[in-house]
Design a protein around this nucleic acid. Structure first.
Lengths: 223, 223
DNA sequence: ACGCTCCTCAAGTAATGTCTTGAATATAAT
DNA sequence: ATTATATTCAAGACATTACTTGAGGAGCGT
């Protein structure tokens, strides 16, 4: 009990879990999987990598215990091993946002200047939803909406928003949401909506945070 | 906004923070620093590495924003950048414990079989402390006690416990605590105390968790 | 100014990680 | 059975990481 070698081995094991998150592509995978399960093909497209490389990264995550798999026919679906993994991912983002010097610049380079972006927090959205004076749009890809979404939200993936904007009722404020605070989909949705003269804001974070707060969620397929 | 290259760079930055934790020696450093600030010499001894290598690892942690420094004369003290870093470390341990297949074996190899080890949780310890029918012993190294400890605890570093056991009042239960759930000091303390015929248990986790729960803490030097 | 202590930096080596390409496997559909 | 689709595996090029040794810099006390 208490010898150096065993202690090093134990902490190496903790390190292995962190190492699994220690790659940008794997971090992207975890961010996508926090929305719900996906199969390899889709994941490869999401992170812009080859299927072989994506498969390799998924195996690294699986070996670290961060994700598990389910087979359905020829497809293999990956998902986070538990909500704790999502918590770990949130904690990592928090620390990076608080202490990583260049993170603000990198976020601004990806998301653009959010100075004028109108946001709404979970509490207010919940109130407005109850009052019925708001329309909520889920602008994530369809499979993520199918895997789970804010109760009452409409699914319009961001790349279809311009074409389907007429499906949304006018004269009522629209709230767009996506994967989380570092996802650009909702930002872009707000831009598109405002350009068309709609009143629009984005939810400050995304679906995982909403679900984590135990707010109402649906998994059935809605409009 | 939203282009691949910028997104990859952003998630690479998240990955860098995780990568900083993705090494057993750096994980040990974070675990020690969660107890309070220490200087390089001590840290090198704690993780069983050369001073040069320890300095290197500390710089990696500093570059990732996980630790900061303070100079005092010839010494440079390192500390966690904020309590969020401690939260991240806790989340990492939780995930590893829940999902890493070999972690239980590695923990058992380092800590020994805890099957018969009597433990006490924070709530019960708090009650017993208020009732005054328990003696609390901090068995961490002296600098960690000085940096912060459970209010009313006595400091007897584990390597002095056998010699100083007579300083502890007999006929009253003793509770030992240390750095956390994966620290062997308190386990060993319980063994030593029981061998001497004392009634003893260990706190399930350690000082960082106690402090995080906003329970009473002292930093002054006590007995 | 000098030596002392504490810490960081640089160079070098062995090991490991990332991504590509092309082949191999497993299940489903024909 | 055979073919098609989805995923994994293997090999190789290239970059990065971990640790050692020895030199260099910063502050303190004499």
């Amino acid at each position: 009990m208490g010898d150096r070698q065993a202690k090093d081995a134990l902490f190496d094991a903790f390190g292995e879990v962190a190492k699994a998150l220690g790659n940008g592509r794997r971090a992207e995978l975890v961010d996508v999987l926090a929305q719900g399960e996906r199969h390899v093909d889709e994941l490869a497209a999401e992170i812009g990598q080859s299927v072989a490389n994506t498969s390799f990264h998924l195996r690294v995550l699986a070996n670290a215990g961060l994700v598990t798999t389910r087979r359905d026919g020829t497809r293999i679906y990956y998902r986070l091993a538990s909500t704790r993994v999502g918590d770990l991912w949130s904690a990592l983002r928090d620390v990076a946002a608080a202490h990583h010097e260049q993170l603000d610049d990198l976020a601004a380079a990806y998301l653009g200047d959010r100075g004028r972006l109108e946001q709404i927090d979970r509490c207010e959205l919940m109130e407005r939803l109850a009052a019925g004076d708001v329309v909520v749009v889920d602008v994530r890809p369809a499979p993520e909406f199918a895997a789970g979404h804010i109760s009452g939200a409409h699914s319009i993936p961001i790349d279809q928003l311009a074409a389907r904007i007429k499906d949304l009722p006018a004269g009522i404020e629209t709230v767009a949401y996506c994967r989380g605070p570092y996802c650009a989909f909702a930002d872009e949705a707000v831009l598109v909506l405002r350009r068309r003269g709609r009143s629009a804001r984005r939810l400050v974070d995304g679906f995982p945070e909403w679900a984590q707060a135990n707010l109402p969620v649906d998994t059935a397929i809605a409009s």
